[in-house]
């Protein structure tokens, strides 16, 4: 009995640990997508942030400096995305892909040049990391709580404020926002910057809270899982949060199920569980489980005729 309880507790704690970067990233992506800017570059922003967090923490000895550096790095990519997609009306998917590839390359290039460890940053000691606050076993560092708070915050901002109303409008019909005398570009830039902030925190969590340092490609598709969570949550904060938890749970369970024979089913391939978030999203997108309707103007550059 006690054993089961421990197992459940540990699994839940692990779920929360795994879900934290997904939640942060999904909330960031939500702002961007709600404003009509598709962001397939969450992965790249998170990776870049993770690298700069670890590099800065290692060089300064301060975890908080790492967090700031992570945000700055993610914001830089976010602004580049905005510059390409909002100012220059470039293709949003192309821009996102470019940033992902750029981040995958640049983190290793800079890491190798600065630390000569094959793209890794030096391992961080405890002082250079964000430490658990209440429960050492659970790994409840400050970013876990930030992630939990980010969900109601995102909901409140989108549903209850002037900014949120305009944000939703600009993602559905930018022309209406423009005709109302509100700047479409500035609204979308703010959304993209919020996205940078949250994906920066997600990256910092990976390299200086969950792990002790950066390693190449350490995001391993989590940015895309966050994107899947947004779609699964139908572009709404709380359902997206739920999807992140489910995906986190799958991951936590996958690790525990490795090599274990489940009674009645036999051994469940770990790869299947790992691919489940993507498969579930595909089923959703195919319309087999409900219907996911994206903001209408998502992906369409706003062009004012002059």
């Amino acid at each position: 009995m006690e054993e089961t309880l421990t197992f459940v507790t540990l699994t839940l704690a692990a779920t929360l640990r795994v879900a934290t970067p997904l939640v942060l990233c999904a909330m960031g992506g939500l702002f961007s997508e709600k404003s009509g800017i598709i962001d397939v570059g969450l992965e790249g922003k998170m990776l870049m942030a993770a690298f700069f967090a670890a590099a800065t923490a290692s060089l300064t000895g301060s975890a908080w400096a790492g967090v700031v550096a992570a945000i700055v790095a993610a914001e830089a990519l976010a602004l580049l995305h905005g510059f390409a997609c909002i100012t220059h009306r470039g293709n949003q998917v192309v821009s996102g892909i470019a940033l992902n590839i750029l981040a995958a390359g640049l983190t290793v290039v800079l890491g190798t040049a600065w630390f000569a460890r094959g793209g890794q940053t030096p391992p961080l000691n405890d002082g250079e990391r964000l430490k658990p606050i209440f429960f050492p076993v659970a790994g409840d560092n400050v970013l876990v709580y930030v992630a939990l708070l980010s969900v109601p915050f995102t909901w409140w901002l989108i549903a209850r404020t002037r900014f949120g109303l305009r944000l939703r409008a600009v993602g559905e019909m930018p022309l209406a926002v423009d005709a109302a005398g509100v700047s479409v570009a500035w609204l979308r830039y703010r959304a993209v910057l919020l996205c940078g902030l949250f994906s920066g925190l997600a990256g910092a969590y990976l390299s200086i809270a969950q792990n002790a340092g950066f390693s190449r490609d350490m995001t391993a598709g989590q940015g895309f899982i966050a994107l899947a969570a947004i779609i699964f949550g139908k572009w709404r904060p709380f359902p997206a949060f739920g999807a992140c938890l489910v995906f986190g749970l799958l991951d936590a369970v996958a690790i525990r199920l490795q090599g274990v024979k489940v009674p009645g089913i036999g051994e469940v391939p770990v790869q299947l569980i790992q691919a489940l978030p993507y498969l579930l999203t595909l089923f959703l997108l195919a319309g087999f489980i409900g219907n996911a309707v994206a903001p209408k103007a998502a992906g369409v550059p706003y062009e004012k005729e002059h």
Binding site: Q92, I101, T112, G119
Partner: peptide, 20 residues
């Protein structure tokens, strides 16, 4: 100059020849 420099170039080419 790691081999990943090529990846960086790919990313920049997509950015400048595509989105920008």
């Amino acid at each position: 100059m790691t081999r990943e420099m090529v990846v960086v170039i790919q990313g920049l080419v997509i950015l400048f020849c595509g989105a920008l």
